[in-house]
Amino acid sequence: MMNCNACESLSCVRGVPVFEALSDKELFIIESIIESHHYNRGNQVFREGEESDSLFVVKSGLIKLTQSNEEGKQHVVRYLFPGDYFGQFALLHHKQNNFTAEIVESGSVCRLRRKDFLPLLEQNVSLAFSFLMSMSEQLQQAEETAGVMHMFEVETRLARLLVKLTSSNKTGTFSPTRNQVIELPSAKKEIAAMIGTTAETLSRKLHKLEAKNIIAVHKRSVEIIDMEALCRIGGY
């Protein structure tokens, strides 16, 4: 019988797109070397510039990736939600982390280390081939997604972020009888930078959605009044 830690590790593996093409047998092999750690708000999973040697999967909670500019100031690159992963290229070669990963909402993170993963690839040709094929597919999809996101209007990018935030620590189902309230994980300036706009434009777009009775803004809290309309704007 599989213990609870193994179940959690396996669910982490199944949540990573680069492993989607693997068979159940291959997934169980990967599961055997997965580690799971709980982090509290404010903890750092790793820092920018440190040696990178692992793939990480967000099991629960919320993580922000930040990067320092030439002046030494940090800006938010993106947020990572349950099911998101990062660091997959570290499984194949040595490199330094380009970002700092900080916990915004307490949760668990699964970790797969290169030193444990590479011997498995050497011993299992089928696993190695499946992993490389999946990695190739993910690179292609990432390029396509980046191109599409670049063409989205600011309002669309904002709507997609808000929808994503509603499911960051929930089951992903929406109650038809109760509005959901989410907390913006960072200041508006950081949120704006993440979706490629200014704080002023972000405020205007929030007010526009509020005027349409789709959301209601209360300082850093956003109440989702019409989820269906928000999803339509986000292109879902």
Results as ranks from 00 to 15, higher is better:
Gly83Ala: 05
Phe99Pro: 06
Phe28Gly: 06
Thr100Lys: 06
Leu91Thr: 11
Ser134Met: 03
Phe81Ile: 13
Glu143Tyr: 13
Ala90Met: 04
Ile225Gln: 05
Glu143Gln: 13
Gly234Phe: 07
Gly15Gln: 10
Ala216Val: 07
Ala128Gly: 08
Ser134His: 04
Leu161Arg: 08
Ser126Pro: 01
Glu153Ser: 14
His150Thr: 11
Ile214Pro: 03
Leu121Trp: 01
Thr197Leu: 02
Val16Gly: 03
Val109Met: 02
Tyr39Ile: 09
Glu210Thr: 09
Ile225Val: 15
Leu209Thr: 00
Leu206Met: 14
Glu71Leu: 11
Gln88Trp: 07
Asn124Ala: 03
His93Trp: 13
Thr197Tyr: 01
Gly147Asp: 13
Leu230Thr: 04
Glu31His: 10
Asp24Ile: 11
Ser106Trp: 05
Ser23Leu: 05
Arg111Ser: 11
Asn3Pro: 05
Leu209Trp: 00
Glu31Arg: 13
Leu121Arg: 01
Ser186Gln: 06
Gln138Trp: 13
Gln44Glu: 06
Asn3Trp: 03
Cys110Thr: 07
Ala128Cys: 08
Glu122Ser: 06
Thr198Phe: 07
Gly172Met: 04
Met194Gly: 06
Arg232Val: 08
Leu120Gln: 08
Ile33Ala: 03
Lys59Leu: 06
Lys219Phe: 14
Gly42Cys: 05
Thr171Lys: 15
Gln180Leu: 08
Leu120Thr: 01
Leu10Val: 10
Arg113Lys: 14
Glu153Arg: 15
Ser32Asp: 15
